[in-house]
Design a protein around this nucleic acid. Structure first.
Lengths: 212, 212
DNA sequence: GTTGAAATTAGTACGAA
DNA sequence: TTCGTACTAATTTCAAC
């Protein structure tokens, strides 16, 4: 995993599966667009909204599922109503060569909703949902701190979640085709670049180098 | 929004809706559990898995939806297969009293999948999905930098997404009942615990206070 | 809150374009 | 490949219990 392009939630499934099994055309994208905002729509209704026949819709639907482009269908739940009103981000510094242990421990923590390995000052960011502030404290000081793989943590609370899109797709904008924007001239000089930091990988991990 | 308990993705829907419209019992929770891992299951099959009648399942299903406990159903899509292989986190420092503008601009950026307001050094964290590294650079230097509300940014790349749970529920573990764990020393800024830091709110924003 | 039966809709198969 | 249709299976809905 020394390449930044290898990401995507591959933790559980088949890691390292890079080859494209299915060429996604415009119709596939349109299907994904509909499905991400209404995961319970019937295939018949889906076919109509996309403008293809029912049989075709079934074929493509199955293909997308089998290929893994659609990983699963899920219900978005209101955490506050479900009793988990507190959300926190915990940035973790992991001891080198102890990633495997770290991942294994994560799997044992049900309150962890999301975990990503990042470049920058810390090595990983985990998002947790709990019922109260005390539970965050317990989680960090009792559970995380007791994992040898964890060298240090930094915790911030989420005060409000401004937006969550079901899932971003390339068709959402112009960015679909790698914009031929050398990026060098993209910001002539009228941009206060001084305040925009890009933080590469820390000690030991893959260096971030491609565009600057 | 001076209370930390008011979170949850309220950006689009009815912000500030705090009152509980529906008392969630164990059966409701079980329904949510099933639905979060299989959003396309039929209500009939759902009823069987939960152990209630079809009609009851339908009633509760509708109630959960109407109440907002279930916000929507969505398909989880493999971003890499969909052509968005790069994920980045951008931590943004926002100029005070310009939050409204910041939010408005966010809505105009389709590559933003998630945005949360946080305590700590920065004011907000946004997660973006784009096709290549150059697009991140363009996004930050061209688009974010040109928003007056944005004072500074810090960008890290996501190298791997270790886990994403559909949605964490209280029934997942013991944390359901607020653990009677005083945790007096937990906040106020930093914790005297060696390498475990808790970072409170920065200048101007709501202080973190709820449980002490 | 449950069961059962009718009406509707979903999913499958197959031939034609 | 995709479409259209006919066939079968399952689901939603509504009734009475």
């Amino acid at each position: 995993m020394s390449e930044i392009s290898r990401n995507g939630v591959g933790g559980g499934g088949q890691p390292g599966r890079i080859g494209i099994g299915l060429e996604l055309d415009d119709v596939h994208m349109k299907i994904l667009e509909v499905l991400r905002e209404n995961g319970r729509i019937s295939v018949a209704a889906l076919a109509e909204r996309v403008g293809i026949s029912r049989a075709n819709a079934y074929t493509r639907f199955e293909a997308l599922r089998a290929d893994g482009a659609i990983k699963r269908f899920t219900a978005e739940i209101d955490h506050v109503r479900a009793g988990l009103g507190i959300t926190a981000l915990i940035f973790v510094t992991v001891r080198q060569q102890m990633w495997k242990q770290f991942r294994a421990e994560l799997a044992r923590m049900p309150e962890v909703e999301y975990c990503a390995i990042t470049t920058g000052q810390h090595d990983a960011m985990i998002q947790v949902r709990v019922s109260d502030v005390a539970a965050v404290h317990t989680m960090v000081t009792d559970r995380l701190a007791n994992i040898p793989a964890v060298k240090a943590t930094e915790t911030v609370f989420i005060l409000d979640e401004v937006l969550r899109r079901p899932y971003v797709l390339p068709s959402d904008r112009d960015q679909g085709r790698p914009a031929r924007r050398p990026a060098q001239e993209a910001q002539g000089g009228d941009v206060p670049l001084g305040k925009m930091r890009f933080v590469g990988a820390a000690e030991g991990r893959a260096a971030l180098r491609k565009d600057d």
